[in-house]
Design a protein around this nucleic acid. Structure first.
Lengths: 204, 204
DNA sequence: TGGACGTATTACCCGCGGGTAAACTGAAGT
DNA sequence: ACTTCAGTTTACCCGCGGGTAATACGTCCA
């Protein structure tokens, strides 16, 4: 493996190289999954030899984890921004739904690592994802508890339900791009969610 | 590897052996995932030597697919029964949600293969799952379209959203068993869903 | 100018695990 | 009893892929 198709090794400052490696790994992991991605593939995608990879990351797993944490951080930021953008619960739900759609629509395809990981048997991976889901669902549960008289346990279940709704619908929407623009889609799902939870305790 | 801890090989009629192998494979796949499961593990779990496995299934992949199709079939049956159990859409949604919870609560843990597969990069696996999701979401979309004036595209998105809600909340509920019994949990999520979709086109 | 350190590379190791060849065994048919 | 054949086992192959020596190259600083 030569660094450029036919060229000499290009030397890069450590941080820059690291970013490049992460970006190459991202692509390969996204299109092949963790198990389908070979370290050789990633090295090749980065136009670098394998040991370079191991100078920056102790192993494949850690490389993957670095990316996963990265994207979970981004998504968390999207969501907290949305949640804090207003004090009106209705608008809060609307903005949060929109944030989900925006995250999924990012060109990095980071959502695939988060929501379609094929490394779910790794305890650390599943812990990271579960921790994120728990935090997010609990935020929603808080909003629900505020507007209804449901018990914490019940509110948490509904929080998970709505989080799942957001995640699944956003991913589906992305696949069918063109049919519905992002605003129309997220607005629709938001309305579904809001109608579902608002004034919940009352009949029908 | 001897067939019984300390015993001689036990000979079994073909069909019976096949069922036993499937059941052993099920356990191993469920607890280790596809990639974490070695054919040796499965053979050992079935108290059988590896070539026996290959007499019944051409390969690991096919063994996995057999199980996956099996569980998707079961779930499909649960759902169609629920969908056909009434003509009242409200009750239909309720029964369908309940069916989802019942499926997840089965002791076979089959839902893990379906909803937490780590073989999503395999085209056939993802096609099977996607086909199922599409069918189910479209059924819901039909119910929605019947009760609202949404376009097919919009109804489909909401169908996916509700399907995702059912799936995610049922799985979450299973993890926290004890807090809420299955009827209370599925009832709660059903109400969330039904409030969300019923009379959708009207404001708020 | 030269050596020291960080950056790369080539070339290799080796274990895990999917898959198989060949031989063994025991029950059923003649 | 002898054959036969399905069901089973032992013992092996071998490639993929994660991970690692050992080494070369450049650049900065004394």
């Amino acid at each position: 493996m030569s660094n450029q198709q036919t060229g000499k090794p290009t030397r890069l400052p450590r941080e820059e190289r690291r970013r490049q490696l992460l970006s190459a790994a991202q692509e390969v992991f996204v299109s092949n999954g963790f198990h389908g991605a070979a370290m050789d593939d990633i090295a090749e995608a980065a136009r670098v030899s394998k040991p370079v990879l191991y100078q920056h990351f102790p192993g494949k797993r850690e490389l993957y984890l670095a990316l996963l944490e990265d994207h979970l951080g981004t998504l968390t930021q999207f969501l907290t921004t949305a949640l804090n953008s207003t004090t009106d619960n209705k608008l809060r739900v609307r903005e949060t739904m929109r944030a989900y759609f925006l995250f999924v629509a990012q060109d990095s395809q980071g959502h695939r690592l988060v929501f379609e990981s094929d490394l779910t048997n790794d305890v650390e991976v599943s812990a990271l994802i579960e921790e994120f889901n728990a935090r997010f669902a609990n935020s929603i549960a808080g909003v629900i508890a505020e507007d209804t008289k449901l018990s914490p346990v019940e509110a948490t279940l509904l929080g998970r339900a709505l989080a799942g709704m957001a995640q699944v619908s956003a991913r589906f929407w992305l696949e069918t791009d063109g049919d519905l623009d992002i605003d129309a889609a997220s607005e629709l799902v938001y309305r579904l969610a809001w109608r579902g939870i608002s004034r919940f305790p009352k009949e029908i």
